[in-house]
Amino acid sequence: MELQWGTIFAAAGAAMAAVLAGIGSALGVGMAGQAGAGVVSEDPDRFGSCLLLQLLPGTQGIYGLLIAFVIATKAGLLSGGVDISATAGLSLFLASVPIAFGGLLSAISQGKVAVSGINMIAKKPEEQGKAMLMTVMVETYAVLALLISFLLVNGVQVG
């Protein structure tokens, strides 16, 4: 059976980027949602601020999707398959590693900070800005991971 290793590796890279970053965001947003439900059960007026904090860990999933899409377009996965060499495919696979693992772990950590932020605004609703800011600090690393993944994917010579 003749396998197109280039395409396979590229597909694996796209899948990994989307899956791992998505898992991270799902876990992060889920954690924050649980904390938010607790706060809202005591004080329904806090819902807006809790929702805002809950949304913040969600960006890593979107970044993963973005890189998956860029890899898929580059390797022709969406339009019927471009012939790419095994080296190019493996390069694409490795290029997805930063956003996959960086997104996974930073989203989980960001979720934990979001949970603490939600607990903070339960006691001090006026400090919502500070809670948001602390949560966003973690996202720096997801952004850096996205950047390097994008640059690496862009730099791969296909065909």
Partner: peptide, 22 residues
């Protein structure tokens, strides 16, 4: 280097929008 996020967030918006369009 921190300003690289301008680039990252900028392309993120555009690429996600084009994904939805596709």
């Amino acid at each position: 280097l921190s300003y690289a996020r301008l680039f990252a967030l900028g392309i993120a918006t555009g690429v996600i929008a084009s994904v939805f369009n596709e």
